[in-house]
Nucleic acid binder design. Sequence first.
DNA 1: CCGTGTGAAGCTGTTCACAGCT
DNA 2: AGCTGTGAACAGCTTCACACGG
Lengths: 222, 222
Amino acid sequence: MSFKRYIPVESISELTINRLSVYLRCLQQLEQEGTTTVSSQELADRFHLNSAQIRKDLAYFGEFGIRGVGYNVTQLREHLVNILGLHEERRVLVVGAGNLGTALSHFSGFNTGGFRIVAILDSDPHKVGKRVPGGLVVESVSDLPRIVKDRKVHIGVITVPASSAQKVYDDLVNGGVQAVLNFAPAQLKGHPEAKLKNVDLKINLELLSFFLTHAARMAAIG
Amino acid sequence: MSFKRYIPVESISELTINRLSVYLRCLQQLEQEGTTTVSSQELADRFHLNSAQIRKDLAYFGEFGIRGVGYNVTQLREHLVNILGLHEERRVLVVGAGNLGTALSHFSGFNTGGFRIVAILDSDPHKVGKRVPGGLVVESVSDLPRIVKDRKVHIGVITVPASSAQKVYDDLVNGGVQAVLNFAPAQLKGHPEAKLKNVDLKINLELLSFFLTHAARMAAIG
DNA sequence: CCGTGTGAAGCTGTTCACAGCT
DNA sequence: AGCTGTGAACAGCTTCACACGG
């Protein structure tokens, strides 16, 4: 119920936060199935997780369980929603109306659960003004500062080529955006005032290629 | 040239492999700029990396540098291509012709550098037979085993809803696919004979939401 | 008893710092 | 001299195992 505020949130690992999202998914599923109470062991068995890790991850934020019983599914889900900040709407700006940016702008995962794409931008005059699937009209990247301000953008998503990613990132941060998701295969110089998360889809294929090349036998726990 | 050590590949971390991909990108850029030699320190400064880590990562696979000088850019790039297995073509099958699957099937990152999408499947009869941007025609998921066998699929990409992800994964592995990239927000039960890599795009937004929430709270507290 | 919450142990990943080679 | 390659120190993450409270 009450957050243990004496632990600085900076000290909590990204790995833990990512697992909280996973636990949230699991609880949503259990809730839909009508389960009201679950133990860490049941969660672990059902979803191939580790029970001690579940308890440790949750313990960073409070005492949500009942000893001898387990966790109330609905209450724990609500706690996780609050911890992850998913109770408020997060407005997302996509920069780069190529293949990936266009897909993400109407990807259900980016338009549900508290997130909403408020604009998609591109530097190509031929793309500006065109409507993308999902209903948004591509706007000019030169309007980035105005759009960030007027639409109170929380999160910037970079899907431009690597060569222009740093400039877009700098513009986003200068415009006041505090969180950026970068899909460009570029090693960006990070600003201390904005959280930067890099996601490189191709790296995952290259990882699999490595395993195909070297592995006769490889564990499949991902 | 030869892999000097007989360290079992299982002992090398995914984190190291992912960084090898990053180093490869950096070297490709340096090569295009005409740089012939680079030290680990120069690489680190230029691309915001750690020089000791670069040397340690490379050392798992051999001695590629010259003491007192650094690394030959072209040679090191070639070594990384070989280590990651990018010298052979990797045939990729996308299962799920929704938003994300369609985008990935013609995403440049999935059709260059040794990777090639050979088919895209869906269970929806209305989608089967339709041509997606990029030129592929959607085929039926019921043909999965035949397609995997005939087109010698190396890597399966799952972009179906979470509820059907486990079945698709099982079918891929039973068909002989040894590497699977899963975009569905599901906790799959892994098969030991196939490498499974989970990528959940929404988790990244939720991570950023967590940081935004924390940043706001810190500002409010002072 | 039972399952949570948690110190402690064990393990993994990163960084340091320097011997050794060019 | 200069930079790599690497043992050793350090830091961070996971798992264990049990005291504690319901």
